[in-house]
Computed example of a mutant assay.
Amino acid sequence: MNRSPDLTTVAWRKSSYSDGGASNCLEVAEGHPGTAPVRDSKRPDGPILVFGASPWASFLAHVKK
């Protein structure tokens, strides 16, 4: 059974691609090997998406192109 990581005390890091403005900001929680918890910085109490390491790496590769 897959379980979501405990994210109650996690430190979120804003994307290095963020322009520093109030829009289009993505935050990633570090310290969860094998997963990449992601949220919208404008909605910190909103939903959190948890990606596996391989799909997240693929996403990052496409974003960097």
Rank of each mutant, 00 (worst) to 15 (best):
D45L: 10
V38G: 03
D6C: 09
G52C: 00
R43D: 14
Y17P: 00
M1F: 10
F51Y: 14
P44M: 06
D6P: 09
P44Q: 03
V10N: 02
W56Y: 14
V10M: 04
D45C: 04
R13H: 14
V63S: 11
D45S: 12
S15M: 06
H62G: 12
L26S: 02
K14W: 06
P33V: 09
N24L: 11
S16P: 02
G20T: 08
V50Q: 05
D6Y: 07
S41C: 10
D45V: 02
P33K: 07
W12N: 02
P44N: 03
R43L: 15
V63R: 13
P33C: 08
N2Y: 12
F59E: 10
F51C: 10
K65Q: 14
G20M: 07
R13Y: 10
P33T: 09
A53Y: 01
S16T: 15
A53H: 12
E30G: 13
I48E: 02
K65C: 11
V28T: 12
A11N: 13
I48S: 00
G20A: 05
S16E: 05
K64P: 00
S23V: 12
T9M: 08
V63T: 11
S16A: 13
F59Y: 15
K65P: 11
E30T: 14
P37G: 07
N2M: 13
W56N: 04
L26P: 00
K64I: 01
N24Q: 14
M1Y: 11
W12M: 06
T8Q: 13
L26Y: 00
T35Y: 11
S58A: 15
F59T: 02
L60S: 10
P37A: 06
V28F: 06
R43A: 15
